[in-house]
Amino acid sequence: MAVPKRKTSTARRDKRRTHWKMEVPAMATCDHCGSVKRPHRVCPVCGFYNGVEVVDMKGAEA
């Protein structure tokens, strides 16, 4: 069974982990209303996706 000969130092361990970072999700603008939204998703403001009204936002408010 393979076992490390020496303990990995915290500096060496943290250097290896520097490339793993949280990133801000990509954002796009809605073609219909111009608001900021996640790409490939229905716009939460107007309910349009790819130029087609998918969700009726006027009826969803009530």
Rank of each mutant, 00 (worst) to 15 (best):
R6Q: 09
E53T: 00
H19E: 07
M57H: 01
T29D: 09
E23R: 15
R6G: 03
A60M: 15
V24G: 07
T8W: 02
C33M: 01
T29R: 13
K58N: 14
W20L: 14
W20C: 14
V45Y: 01
D31I: 07
S35V: 02
P44A: 05
E23K: 08
M1S: 13
V42S: 04
T18R: 11
M22H: 14
C33Q: 11
F48I: 02
V55F: 06
R12V: 07
G34C: 03
M1K: 11
C30S: 04
G34L: 05
V24A: 14
P44G: 05
R6F: 06
V45M: 04
E53G: 00
A2K: 15
T8E: 08
V24C: 08
T8R: 06
C46V: 01
V52R: 08
V54R: 12
T18I: 13
A60G: 13
T18C: 10
K7Y: 11
V52N: 09
H40S: 11
K58H: 12
S35P: 01
C30V: 01
P39V: 01
C30G: 01
K5W: 11
M27W: 11
P39D: 08
K58M: 09
P44Q: 07
C46A: 07
K5Y: 10
R13K: 10
K37T: 10
K5A: 06
H40R: 10
V52K: 11
V24I: 13
M1Q: 12
R12W: 03
R38W: 06
R17L: 14
R41S: 15
V42M: 04
C30M: 02
H40A: 12
V3W: 13
P44Y: 09
V54W: 04
K15P: 09
M57K: 05
G51C: 03
P25G: 09
P39S: 07
C33N: 15
A28I: 01
F48G: 03
M22D: 14
W20D: 10
K37R: 14
G47I: 02
G51A: 07
P4W: 00
M27K: 09
D14H: 04
E61N: 07
C46P: 02
H19T: 13
R13L: 07
R17H: 12
R38G: 06
K7S: 14
G34M: 06
E53A: 03
G47V: 01
S9I: 05
A2L: 10
C43E: 01
G34D: 05
G34H: 00
V24F: 07
K58D: 13
M57N: 01
V36K: 08
K5Q: 14
R38A: 10
H40M: 06
C30F: 00
R17A: 09
A62W: 12
A26H: 09
E61H: 07
C30E: 05
K21D: 05
C43G: 00
F48R: 01
T10V: 15
V36T: 10
K5H: 08
P39W: 09
V45C: 00
S9C: 04
T29A: 04
R16E: 09
A11C: 13
V55P: 05
G51Q: 02
E61W: 02
V24W: 06
E53F: 00
M22L: 11
H32D: 09
G59Q: 04
M1Y: 13
K5I: 15
T8K: 12
W20P: 10
V54A: 07
R17G: 14
A60D: 15
